Simulated scan of single mutants.
Amino acid sequence: MTRIVQGRRRTVAAIAALLVAVLASASCGAQIGEGGRFGVVYMDAQGYYAGVRKGMQDEAERMGRNVQLLELNAQGDASKESSFIDTVSSADVDALVLSPVSETASIPAIRLAHRSEVPVICYNTCIADEAAQEYVDAFILGDPLEFGGLLGDAAADYFIAEGIEAPQIGIVNCEQVEVCVQRRLGFEEALFAKLPDAEIVANQQGAEVDEAVDVAERILTAHPDLDAFFGQAGGATLGSIRAVQARGKVGQTVVFGGDMSTEAANALVDHRVLKGNVDISGVEVGRMAAETAQRVLAGEELEEFILPAPVEIYTTPEDGQAWLEAHPDGLP
């Protein structure tokens, strides 16, 4: 127990030292952060969150504001997230923008920010509905049911074209967060509407790429005749693609997944394994987050709590090439 307490104290101290350094550097240049200081939490290190960061910076620049971002990659750790939120709330940031790591474990920290009069904006994920309505000002969300439904439709159309009436499908999931559960429900509803004899033979967690490779390989071992994977997010999708390639299943097992990246776009251009990918642009979500934060800070009353982010599907090699050309920096 002593070691745990000491570890938490070191985490808090490290975050506090980082913020002191950032704020000290701001005092040396009067322009830094004059357009606002935002505490920003990224759930993990996947490329989507780099896109969110760029989107926030681009939107602030477009508005002519020099916004300072105090940032944390929570790495899926609710205690690390909590320590950071505690520190930035005490530092009087103008807003907290975050993708919470847990519907429940993230509630106390977000409650603290709210009680410290820090506006809270969720994106991608949020806390449980009742708590969100009380402590969160806005939630930027690409409809997860639509996300899954677009992939389910694309998968069904592919199997029908291939003459496969009862495909076996393995899911590599990120269902530790509710949006991924909703993605699965949307996928299943669309798939079974067209192919009622389709079967989900496995559904296992593998949110990070390395973990997803191991999970997908285990599923392939248990189900050697698997027709497809559904990767619920970026890491799950890329891990599934790599597992298919490593196990020599190219030409037999295909992948339908989520979250575009340079690797995913190249796989779509190749088109032997990845047949469809749905994306909610991190850059667009970041842009919306910065815009929403400024509206809240200006005292504007938002008409809706949930602000819909666009959901797009890519299914052809041409789609993949177009994405690569539109995203030369690789940020989704």
Rank of each mutant, 00 (worst) to 15 (best):
I219C: 03
A246T: 11
R115E: 10
H327D: 09
V172D: 09
A91G: 10
A13I: 01
G320N: 09
S116T: 13
G149D: 10
G29E: 14
E146F: 01
G142R: 09
A131H: 00
A30R: 07
D225F: 09
R37S: 04
R115Q: 15
G257Q: 07
V179Y: 10
E178M: 12
G33Q: 04
L297Q: 13
I241L: 04
G206L: 06
Y42V: 06
F38Y: 07
D86R: 13
R10D: 12
V254R: 12
F192G: 01
G231N: 04
A78Y: 13
A293V: 00
V12S: 11
L72R: 06
Y49I: 06
N277W: 08
H271K: 14
D279S: 11
P100V: 08
Q6R: 02
A156T: 07
A132K: 04
P332I: 07
E178L: 14
L72V: 10
L185K: 15
V52A: 06
R247F: 04
E211I: 08
E301T: 02
E211G: 03
C122F: 05
V101D: 15
H223L: 11
D137Y: 13
F159T: 10
I313W: 02
G282C: 07
I140C: 02
D58Q: 05
K249W: 05
E71C: 09
C122S: 15
G206C: 12
Q176P: 00
T125K: 06
E134M: 09
F305C: 03
S99F: 05
D210T: 14
L220S: 09
Q252W: 03
G29P: 00
H327Y: 06
S106G: 06
Q46W: 10
S261F: 06
D210P: 00
W323R: 05
R3K: 07
A326H: 03
G36W: 07
Y314I: 00
S27D: 13
T104R: 00
I241E: 11
L70P: 01
A14Q: 14
G320K: 04
S106L: 13
E189I: 05
S82V: 02
A207Q: 15
V285C: 11
I280G: 04
V177I: 14
L226C: 08
P328V: 11
G231D: 03
R37L: 03
A50F: 13
Q6Y: 01
V22T: 14
V120F: 04
E71P: 00
I164R: 12
G299R: 14
A156F: 15
T87K: 15
M43I: 11
V244P: 05
Q168P: 08
M288H: 03
G55T: 07
V250K: 12
G239E: 01
F147M: 11
Q6S: 12
D197A: 04
F139N: 04
E162Y: 03
G235W: 13
A95M: 10
H327Q: 02
V41A: 09
Q182T: 09
E208A: 08
